[in-house]
Design a binder for these strands. Structure first.
Lengths: 209, 209
DNA sequence: ATAAGAATTAACCGAACCGGTCAAGGAGGC
DNA sequence: GCCTCCTTGACCGGTTCGGTTAATTCTTAT
């Protein structure tokens, strides 16, 4: 790709990136026209081809960009370094909300790319997925202390429930075009508080509290 | 449309319908080629045009078919006539599983059509949506008895949690190509049982039990 | 066997689309 | 004016698409 792209004002770079996310997330790779991306970015098709020599290059660049953005944002959010389970969940949610704010279609783009089968990009995407290790969500990893929760609670099921509810909530909200991320954040916070009130053991105190 | 379509063996009708669901759910209306649908159905494009005079007709037929299938299946499942909340949930889940078994791409087709913006079909779809009344999921409608659940439970939040978890679970599972509906049913049953164990008031008995 | 009729398809058509190129327009600095 | 760089309209060859038509195959009644 043409390094001149990175000398563009960040705002313009993001506009092009978001245009790519949008178009590639709405159509398959083959049926995502460069012209449509250029239009969405507010530039001419020729200029888009000036920055990215061909479609495949743009596509793979966007894919890499996704990983960078996601990892960076999640790291910066501190959700991995949180002792309290619900705090970590809360921080993670905040991070995701920030991603949506800046790159509204990133999530859907990742999903589409993940299942993309076009031979022109399939092997590259698959290789990249394998490299990143496909870290599955899993309660066992978290090493949660059963003492913290109500007696007899199936912690793994609790985590499943929370994980799926998050996914379901996000999917439903993001589906439309105008996403009110602030409202989303607020609603989701309420949901986390609800879980806390249900799952957390009451009447005692632990650790530093 | 050509009424001869309905004289086809049901198996063949379903194959064409599912081919339509599949292609229209994977691409936008405009970028869903009739030829691709014909191929997926195992017939020639000409024959497809013989049954449906043009693309729009096929599309709107499929949309109507969705409503018919969904309403019919849910009614037949008895999930609306169940006194117990979790039983009703269970029956509803079973019904959805059956729909997925018979029409794997119906759900995704509905979603796509719901947000389709192509002027060739937009007004028709919107009118149909308005007519069906867009029944939103809402705990208040169910008129649940608070006595049945653990004290102090925010029933509406409980319902939200369950609703979103269902959505999230379905979306994640249905995303891939090979759906193991049986495993899904089983896993989901476990989730419902988990909810029962968490939310239901214990140590007492009610009603007919 | 065969003719009539129905089911199904290959071949085709004009229009639009798509990835990619290229030569030229336009703005700023000297 | 002239050089440089960003940006674009116009274009090209190839492909795709919705839809039509005429022909081919299959069925069936006689």
């Amino acid at each position: 790709m043409n390094d001149k792209f990175f000398e563009l004002p960040l705002e313009k770079q993001e506009k092009i990136i978001n245009a790519g996310f949008r178009v590639f997330s709405q159509n398959s790779y083959k049926k995502s026209p460069m012209s449509e991306i250029a239009d969405a970015a507010g530039i001419s098709k020729s200029l888009l081809f000036h920055y990215f020599h061909n479609k495949k290059e743009l596509y793979l660049f966007l894919w890499d960009k996704c990983a960078t953005i996601t990892i960076e944002t999640l790291m910066k959010s501190g959700c991995y370094f949180q002792a309290d389970f619900f705090d970590s969940m809360y921080k993670g949610m905040k991070a995701k909300a920030n991603i949506i704010r800046q790159y509204p279609d990133l999530g859907r783009f990742v999903m589409k790319a993940y299942y993309e089968k076009d031979p022109e990009v399939f092997s590259e995407i698959q290789a990249s997925i394998a490299k990143h290790g496909a870290f599955k969500a899993n309660a066992k990893l978290l090493n949660l202390d059963p003492e913290q929760f109500i007696p007899g609670l199936d912690i793994e099921m609790m985590y499943q429930d929370m994980y799926w509810a998050s996914e379901g909530y996000l999917w439903n909200k993001v589906q439309g075009d105008n996403i009110d991320v602030d409202a989303m954040e607020q609603e989701f916070t309420k949901l986390i508080d609800f879980w806390k009130s249900i799952y957390l053991r009451k009447g005692e105190s632990y650790g530093s509290n």
